[in-house]
């Protein structure tokens, strides 16, 4: 976990980092403060530096409060995730000109602008109705929290695609039915894309193999 962000920040061993290990977790927090965030003066970082101390947790809680972390009450993984993102933001802010110069090659858009008739494309993903709906369906299906409801619905789609659809009691039909329909539509859309790619591959092969012919000498047609 966190490999991308750690790599971006220049952490010495992003691949082997195990966030479940308390000691590793604490040392990464310290590393972030020492190298990247530098919110405290060096002498004020002792509470975080004593990673073997029982008081470390208190220091960490205070640290998060001082940083005004929105997930100070969240799980350790959420907390670390925010710290990492915060560090990345600071890093970017320090070197805006440098990072802005980086050009990511975007694939050329060949398809013309199509006015979508797919209702999903016009959905407002930040509307309270959508957020609440996602919250309800995630609670029922056991999908963990994430600030962006689109991420959660993507996770839910993955779960439902790979595991059998649960049976639900009739009383829950209305709660379940709507999001279920949405997911089915997403699934069908993905399947359509897959089928289209398959067809394109077949057509590509046909340009090499196809040579349809008829020979009316072989049989008699018409009159």
């Amino acid at each position: 976990m966190y490999r991308l962000k750690l790599t971006a920040l220049g952490h010495p061993n992003p691949k082997s980092f195990n966030c479940e290990d308390v000691k590793e977790y604490r040392s990464v927090v310290l590393w972030l403060e020492d190298q990247k965030i530098r919110h405290y003066k060096i002498e004020d970082r002792d509470g975080l530096r004593n990673i073997d101390s029982d008081n470390w947790q208190n220091a960490y809680d205070l640290y998060q409060k001082d940083l005004v972390s929105p997930v100070a009450d969240g799980t350790p993984t959420e907390q670390l995730n925010w710290l990492l993102s915060y560090a990345v933001r600071l890093e970017f802010a320090d070197n805006v000109t440098k990072y802005k110069a980086v050009i990511i090659e975007e694939p050329k858009k060949v398809t013309p602008n199509v006015v979508s008739s797919n209702p999903l494309d016009n959905l407002n993903f930040s509307s309270p109705a959508f957020v609440n709906g996602v919250e309800r369906v995630c609670a029922l299906s056991g999908i963990g929290p994430h600030p962006d409801p689109k991420f959660r619905i993507a996770a839910l789609a993955k779960v439902l695609k790979t595991s059998p659809h649960p049976d639900y009691p009739n009383t829950e039909v209305s709660i379940i039915k709507q999001p279920k329909d949405v997911l089915e539509l997403i699934f069908i859309q993905n399947l359509r894309d897959l089928q289209t790619s398959i067809n394109e591959a077949l057509v590509a092969v046909q340009t090499v193999t196809a040579d349809p012919r008829t020979d009316t000498k072989l049989g008699k047609v018409g009159r």
């Binding site: 046909q206 196809a210 008829t214 020979d215 009316t216 049989g219």
Partner: peptide, 28 residues
């Protein structure tokens, strides 16, 4: 009546195994 799409015995063997994939490959 007889078909007017040229086929030999080998084509038939392949068509039997491949079904419409044969028609697709041959461009029909």
């Amino acid at each position: 009546s007889k078909g007017i799409i040229p086929m030999n015995a080998r084509d038939l063997e392949e068509a039997l195994e491949m079904g419409m994939d044969w028609s697709l490959r041959e461009g029909y």
